[in-house]
């Protein structure tokens, strides 16, 4: 297993796609978490200009408070239910799907380690990269927040350890769940394109449409309340991200579920996606 993790880390580390996707997330996280809000705060004229459009009418003091270091755990997580999740889903789907696309799994599965070990190696490598990505995001957010606080002569209050752990844990859980979803789709479809397409349509379109319809059809609401996106949005909402419907709210953030329920549901989806990927990979072995 260690050899497989090492091999996959080597591959994913050298893979331009990995850096494009991780870089995109970091840029989006900083842009929507700090740049736009700070520009909005700085240009706040109390009228209906740029500031008011970006902040959706939120007062300038609220905007500034959201940019302070003690809010970093929340800022880190708020973009993950939708945008961060979609990006890591793509990474998971491509990491597995491309092996089928290029035929490399064929060689690995026949002459390398056992199938489950090989897939476990990919999952392990993706997990390590995910931890790195979330931690780097957290550090960059801290740097951005301290920069804003210094520029605005605000007190620099570090986020508490408990809040930081909560934010990092929630961020990891959300991203791990979406990434595992991508891995499962890549395994299921045995290719990158369909896996990415289906994953994005589900995470960005279908869940939102279902939530819209659920307002009209009561029984459907029971289902939409336990969908992966709802759970991801709920955990972000539970730790303090502004819900989508509020002024200056973040797309995908909701409070449909409580924090514990959302975390349990996310954990369940994560385990189910991982188990399905491993089981499917093992099941296709004609020698077992």
């Amino acid at each position: 297993m260690i050899a497989s993790v090492r091999a996959e880390l080597l591959r994913l580390g050298r893979w331009p796609t990995t850096w494009v996707l991780c870089g995109t997330w970091l840029v989006l996280n900083l842009t929507f978490g700090y740049v736009f809000n700070y520009l909005s705060y700085r240009s706040d004229d109390g009228g209906g200009g740029f500031a008011n459009q970006v902040s959706d009418g939120a007062p300038a003091s609220t905007l500034l408070a959201q940019l302070m270091p003690d809010r970093v755990p929340v800022t880190l997580v708020q973009g993950m239910p939708m945008f961060g999740g979609a990006l890591v889903l793509i990474l998971g789907a491509l990491a597995v799907g491309s092996g089928y696309g290029w035929g490399t799994w064929k060689t690995v599965f026949t002459t390398g380690p056992r199938r489950v070990t090989a897939m476990g190696g990919t999952l392990g490598a993706l997990g390590i990269m995910l931890v790195g990505l979330v931690v780097v995001s957290f550090i960059l957010d801290l740097v951005a927040a301290f920069t804003v606080a210094a520029a605005e002569s605000q007190p620099t209050t570090w986020p508490t350890l408990a809040d930081s752990a909560q934010g990092l844990g929630a961020g990891l859980l959300i991203c791990a769940m979406w990434m595992a979803g991508g891995v499962m789709l890549g395994t299921l479809t045995r290719g990158p394109a369909l896996a990415v397409g289906l994953g994005l349509v589900w995470s960005l379109v279908v869940e939102n449409l279902l939530r819209g319809v659920a307002g009209l059809l009561g029984p459907l609401e029971t289902v939409t309340n336990v969908l992966p996106g709802t759970a991801a949005g709920s955990i972000a909402g539970a730790i303090g991200a502004v819900v989508q419907s509020d002024p200056n709210g973040t797309p995908g953030v909701t409070t449909v579920l409580g924090g514990t329920a959302a975390a349990l549901l996310l954990g369940g989806y994560l385990l189910a996606f991982l188990a399905a990927s491993l089981a499917l990979t093992a099941r296709r072995d004609v020698t077992t």
Partner: peptide, 23 residues
């Protein structure tokens, strides 16, 4: 295999080292 089984977006050396590190 009859059709090449290598990652097109890695170099030749990176592909060989990827397979080497599996063993």
């Amino acid at each position: 295999t009859q059709s090449p089984s290598v990652y097109a977006d890695l170099t030749v050396r990176e592909n060989a080292r990827y397979f080497a590190s599996l063993y």
